[in-house]
Structures are given as structure tokens and as C-alpha cells.
């Protein structure tokens, strides 16, 4: 944990100086997903409609990486006021409220997912309300989210990771950062047979190809 417990007015001002809205000025276009070329919309219509693996992308969400002090009650209160839900302080857990979800990443780091168009407003609220020493980085462009589900979803994960996916040790809501194939992913169980994979932009195509290959024996259904 940081030993910095208070910040001066000058430092507070500095935390706001670097804030910029990363979205284009027209407020309509959110940019392009790293899986744009895979064209999930067409694949969903033309591809298989039955199979053991269902895959969809939650493209262009707002990804905010928050680092702060889990022991600082003022910071915890500020986060709860902004997101409407307290930070998950227990390792490997997550919380969700409406369109906001927060994942424990490390004892002093959380990943917050919000709708893409809300990222800047939430970021601005943090700059206004968060006391003390903290860091908030809008990393939306650096990763994307895949939703993996179906009767064989667990088998696909077993082929791709070294994690134990049994419900008794990996309940709904649990989140792990781990190796996925030869890349990495942050994986959260959102239902018995439904998983959220947060993957790096630069590895998105590799993981897309990997999932196609790994689901050959089960059948892959793309959902738009």
C-alpha cells in the first residue's frame, strides 16, 4: 500500500489536468473493436445455429482501471457513491450493479466496466470525488470482452487454462487473471455455463482463432 495519505491542492489539480475524453467529438462512433474484421454480425446470421460453444463480443465498453487503498474508508465511500456498489475487497470476487461491474484484480487494483459512452463521465466523477492518493486509467481501447457460454464452455476453458473450473471452487462471480492459451485473460463466471473473458486488443485475433480451433469438436455458434 502507498504511504502517501494526503495530497496537496496542487496535486489534486494535477490529477484533473490529464483528463480527456478519448471518444471522437461526434459522440456517436465509439471506434472500432479489435475483432471488427471477424464480422460477428454476419457470422451470427450465416454460421452454425447449434453447437456446444456460444460466443459473442461485448465490444467498445468503457474499461477503467482503478488503483487505490483498500484500507482507506474515505476512498471506499467515494467509489460506492459513484458506482452505487462497494468495491469487492475479497480476492478473486466481483460485483455487478446494472450496467456497472467491478472485478478484484489485485489487493489494490480493480477493473471497472461501464457502457462505452459513460466512461468519460464516470472518470470525471472520480476526479471530482476521490480523495487522497489513487490512480484511474481509462484503458478502454486496450482490451475487449468476449462472452463464452454453452454446454461445452467449461471444456473449452479446461483446454485453454490451468484453472479448476468446478463450481465448488469456481462459483458464479469469481474472477481470475490467468494464462489463456499463450496469451492472458481475466475470466469471470457470470453463470454456471457462462463466462466473461477480458482480453488484450493485440491478442484478440489470436484468441478468436484459438477459440475457433478449440471449439471445432463442439460446434461454434456466433451471437451478434
Amino acid at each position: 500500500m502507498s504511504d502517501v495519505t494526503s495530497t496537496t491542492k496542487l496535486e489534486q489539480a494535477a490529477t484533473k489536468a490529464a483528463v480527456m475524453n478519448q471518444l471522437p467529438a461526434d459522440k456517436e462512433s465509439l471506434g472500432q473493436s479489435p475483432l471488427h474484421h471477424a464480422d460477428f454480425a454476419s457470422a451470427a446470421k450465416r454460421g452454425a445455429q447449434k453447437g456446444g460453444i456460444h460466443l459473442s463480443e461485448l465490444a467498445l465498453l468503457g474499461h477503467l482501471t482503478l488503483r487505490c487503498d483498500a484500507g482507506n474508508l474515505e476512498q471506499l465511500a467515494a467509489v460506492e457513491a459513484i458506482l452505487g456498489v462497494p468495491l469487492p475487497l475479497t480476492p478473486l470476487t466481483s460485483v455487478e450493479k446494472g450496467a456497472y461491474s467491478v472485478r478484484w484484480m489485485s489487493p489494490d487494483e480493480w477493473l471497472i466496466l461501464v457502457p462505452g459512452l459513460e466512461a468519460f463521465s464516470i472518470e470525471s466523477q472520480f476526479r471530482d470525488a476521490m480523495p487522497g492518493h489513487y490512480s484511474l486509467v481509462n484503458s478502454s481501447g486496450g482490451s475487449t470482452v468476449l462472452m463464452l457460454s454453452g454446454d461445452n464452455a467449461v471444456e473449452l476453458l479446461q483446454k485453454s487454462t490451468t484453472i479448476d473450473w468446478h463450481l465448488s471452487v469456481f462459483p458464479v462471480g469469481k474472477v481470475v487473471s490467468t494464462l489463456f492459451a499463450k496469451s492472458t485473460a481475466t475470466i469471470r463466471r457470470t453463470d454456471d455455463q457462462r463466462f466473461e473473458l477480458i482480453i488484450r486488443r493485440s491478442f484478440a485475433d489470436y484468441i478468436w482463432l484459438w477459440i475457433q480451433d478449440a471449439s471445432l469438436e463442439y460446434g461454434l455458434v456466433i451471437e451478434a
Partner: peptide, 8 residues
């Protein structure tokens, strides 16, 4: 270091 996990 837990490099692929919590990075601590």
C-alpha cells in the same frame, strides 16, 4: 511474482 495473475 504472480506475473499472469495479480502481478504482486
Amino acid at each position: 511474482v504472480h506475473s499472469a495473475g495479480c502481478r504482486k
